[in-house]
């Protein structure tokens, strides 16, 4: 399991897998809305088109921030695939999300600024929950190294998975929690001033960002049999994506105060409750 080429293969598979997942999500959303929906490969078509278009820029800084964002996210994903430290992954990915905000702030557009501001709020809302979830895993396992995690975490930390659902919804830009990319309010939020290949780069960074969260969630299921582990993890991810799509289609968007409040309070409360239960039973403990 711990061979380096296995990690590399996993890393190379990330983007196609996330693209397919997003395509599946778009079809599912369309079907929930009584529509047929795009082909499964649609996210790849979009990406291909974006890289083929002319890029218009407000300033050179945008490119730097977009590329830095992609680099940081790819680094973080690589680390996760190679079985590295969860904390380092988390902070690298967080820095990558921050690059998007900086890129949006660097352009002189009110929509871009408002979008960046909301993106920051979202980061404030979900990072603590994500961070606490990682702490909970580390606390139970006694280590933050991905390749030395063992045991079926979903059995002992089920509330942590629940707490991660709002985080997933924010990262997948789904209502009720899609503040920054609220189409009808801010058009495309932080992405507004990117076009063509630069938009493609930010999209890729977003795919990696999503992959890190889904990859982390998938760690919660392990089985002795490698095949069963794979199947279970895939099922877990697809189940969560379906759940997020259904919630997206039955709710309106919340306002920013409500988003921060619900994500943080529910998330922190769930993770905290789970840790208290574990402590009561005397399980786990970071050495």
């Amino acid at each position: 399991m711990n061979e380096w080429y296995f990690g590399l293969a996993l890393f190379l598979l990330t983007l196609p897998a996330i693209g397919l997942l997003l395509g599946f999500d778009r079809i599912l959303t369309a079907r929930l809305q009584n529509r047929v929906g795009p082909p499964l490969w649609q996210p790849f078509f979009d990406l291909a088109k974006l890289f083929d278009k002319e890029g218009l820029l407000m300033n050179k800084g945008q490119v730097v921030f977009a590329l830095m964002g992609l680099l940081l996210q790819a680094c973080a994903m690589g680390l996760l695939c190679m079985g590295g430290d969860l904390l380092v992954t988390f902070f690298l990915s967080g820095a990558g999300s921050f690059m998007l905000v900086l890129g949006a702030f660097s352009a002189l557009s009110p929509f871009s600024h408002l979008g960046a501001h909301r993106e920051l709020l979202q980061i404030v809302a979900y990072e603590p929950v994500f961070f606490l979830a990682i702490i909970a895993v580390g606390w139970y396992e006694g280590t933050f190294m991905v390749d030395s995690l063992e045991g079926n975490l979903i059995g002992v930390l089920p509330l942590v998975v629940l707490a991660l659902i709002p985080v997933l919804m924010i990262k997948m830009q789904k209502s009720p929690l899609d503040l920054a990319t609220a189409h009808q309010e801010l058009v495309a939020g932080p992405y507004v001033e990117y076009s063509g290949p630069y938009l493609g780069i930010t999209k890729l960074a977003h795919w990696f960002e999503l992959a890190i969260l889904l990859g982390f969630i998938s760690l919660f299921y392990t089985n002795d049999d490698a095949l069963w582990t794979l199947m279970g993890r895939l099922l877990l991810i697809i189940g969560l994506v379906v759940l997020v799509a259904v919630i997206d289609n039955t709710t309106a968007r919340l306002t920013r105060g409500a988003v921060v409040l619900t994500t943080m309070t529910i998330g922190i409360a769930l993770v905290g409750a789970n840790l208290i239960i574990l402590a009561l039973y005397g399980l786990g403990g970071l050495a």
Binding site: R35, G37, P38, P39, Q42, D46, A188
Partner: peptide
Amino acid sequence: DVERFGMVNKANPK
């Protein structure tokens, strides 16, 4: 449902 052809209303010229 023009999303069948991949069309999405982006409302953003860029």
